[in-house]
Write a protein that binds this DNA or RNA. Structure first.
Lengths: 349, 349
DNA sequence: AAAACGAATGGTAGCGCTATCATGACAGCG
DNA sequence: CGCTGTCATGATAGCGCTACCATTCGTTTT
């Protein structure tokens, strides 16, 4: 760009302006022979303009290769069509499946996902929330009902929909999830039904994965009601096949009379099951194994894994639908949705 | 806000303005006793202002609970610190691991990820790219080198870094990946070394997962050089344990003399291996099985899966680092980075 | 001592879009 | 014929922030 010759004595300095060479809506409007605001309407509220105006604007858009500047649009309208999604982990496929459900539903409605990962750190969550609020997100989805104080205050004063997913409970606004305490009870009931009495619960990093500890609470309550001890073994690596194998080894060492292991999730359970197989242990004869989540892997190991199926993609889809309903100004009849769970009995118990 | 009394004969109508009740930088500046621009600098270029000014601005931010409006900032500076990431699928954990690597590196530098999912549809990719350009993204990461015409044109005229990941080749700008043809060759070499001659390649939806078909090309080339036939079986469900089990069944039916199956990925291979186990087939005695990716699952089945390990998180991290280097104006010495792969031999071949 | 320089700060003018209000044209109605 | 109502369009004024240039003041250079 050659700047204009700096004509000397000009009193108004004619300040040099930056300019992105991008096509603007004004240029489109000019090419279409309408005012900028009509061009804007032609694109965003097509039924507010005449057919002829709409047509010539669309032609100009095509001809000039116009790409709308969404940043400017958001600033002017303070609506961004961005949805913040905050999850504690991407390694854990459970969250990814929820994201998948959210995404396919939200993208279809023209929303985009801003993704944040807290690594199970609530302070990190607070930082992400701050950033995302700065983007004037239309809504925020977060995994879990627990937040730190600052985050809670910030969100409580925010006037957009907040959707808390995964677990069920008294949330800030909208909530889609399942009852983890009940899920823990359910599996404990099943194990008792099967006649097991020496049952160990094995979890990984329960202070982080507090939903797993809620399941343990349910598990423990059921056993206590029968006067049965409910030992807990906590691993300090995150859930993985490897951790599951280690969990099995530790249980066998520390609680030699154990008949069944209730694992906090399927990764651990499958890891243990495959390890048992390698060691020539009979499942469930020598030791019974149960998990949680209903991952496909559990259906392909031998014996099939007893687990609790959680509808993860469905949870994401439902959360997205409820958000969309709310964002389009419709009434929300229920703030809380229980997606439930299903006991899936396999040969492993 | 009570609007000013509409003093009658005023020629300027004193238009009613919307106002979000959010704290603005001007309010912070006022509270801190400095000009708005100094407040801006105190937050974004701390070393451009005096210690006293910075301190009073930070105190005012704290006191008022100021959250920067990033939309406004982006519009004014035409820099957004958003990075668009476009992947074909979230079900396939491979892409998620790359995202993980990208995210942990980019978030640490203050960038946010805008996530898009094409579902293996290049037209969908084009739409996503359009949207993301509208957000003035600082850079764009896309999985793969193939784009449709419109997308290519759009990107070619875009003046921000573009990072194409997963595969290696002549890209639009930056490229981090591995040579899939070579990976296919590598596994074929291994299978020949092991003495197998009747080898079937099994893939799923190869027109979509074209990197798997590149691996097949490598595989086929190696076998052809030895004058060996390289039959291909294509499944039309996406890669999964279930599909792998079906693949095994189809191979046994259609090619009864098969000695080894080279699967397009580990999900398929592990599914086949677990199915073989259920059916009492000996691996590798009756049939050898090989995969691609190096998923943890492959190390936990018996026998361990022979596979090719691809450094997925590392790919994401490296891509992010290169982008950051480029975004911070440093010289880029290499536009192309080969992250390589490793043959991991297990008992399954 | 004059000139030159750098550091800290501020005034101004937008970034590209849309909300708000205003206008003009035309139809319906008593 | 004036009044009101609807429709399509446009002029104007920001949304909240930062780039650009100008200014001030204290320090260094010649």
């Amino acid at each position: 760009m050659s700047k204009d010759s700096p004509n000397a004595a000009s009193p108004s300095p004619a300040r040099q302006r930056r300019s992105s060479d991008q096509v603007t809506l004004s240029q489109v409007a000019q090419a279409a022979g309408v005012s900028p605001i009509t061009a804007s309407r032609a694109l965003n509220n097509p039924d507010k303009v005449s057919d002829s105006a709409r047509l010539s604007v669309l032609q100009a858009v095509e001809k000039l290769g116009y790409v709308p500047n969404l940043v400017a649009g958001s600033l002017a309208s303070s609506r961004s069509r961005l949805i913040a999604v905050i999850v504690p982990s991407l390694i854990n496929s459970v969250f990814v499946e929820v994201i998948k459900g959210l995404q396919e539903t939200l993208e279809a409605e023209g929303y985009q996902i801003l993704l944040g990962n807290t690594d199970y750190d609530l302070d990190r969550e607070y930082q992400l929330v701050r950033t995302f609020l700065g983007w004037s997100c239309s809504a925020l989805v977060t995994a879990g009902l627990r937040h730190n104080k600052a985050c809670h205050t910030l969100l409580a004063n925010w006037d957009h929909p907040i959707m808390e997913v995964m677990e069920l409970g008294k949330g800030m606004d909208l909530n889609v999830g399942l009852d983890h305490v009940a899920a823990g009870r359910c599996m404990a009931d099943h194990l008792l039904d099967k006649g097991y009495r020496h049952i160990v619960y094995v979890g990984a990093r329960l202070s982080q994965d507090y939903r797993a500890s809620m399941r343990y609470e349910g598990h423990k309550a059921v056993l206590k009601e029968k006067g049965i001890d409910a030992p807990l073994l906590e691993l300090d690596t995150l859930g993985s096949l490897q951790a599951g194998a280690e969990g099995l080894a530790q249980v066998l060492a520390q609680y030699p009379h154990t008949q069944a292991i209730h694992f906090a999730n399927d990764d651990l359970a499958a890891g243990a099951l495959l390890a048992a197989q390698r060691q020539g242990l009979n499942v469930p004869g020598d030791i019974a194994i149960a998990g949680f989540n209903g991952l496909p892997l559990g259906q392909h190991v031998t014996p099939q894994l007893t687990t609790i199926l959680s509808p993860r993609e469905e949870m994401g889809r439902l959360a997205a639908k409820e958000l969309i309903r709310r964002l389009s100004g419709k009434n929300v009849y229920r703030r809380q949705h229980d997606v439930g769970f299903t006991l899936q009995t396999g040969g492993s118990t």
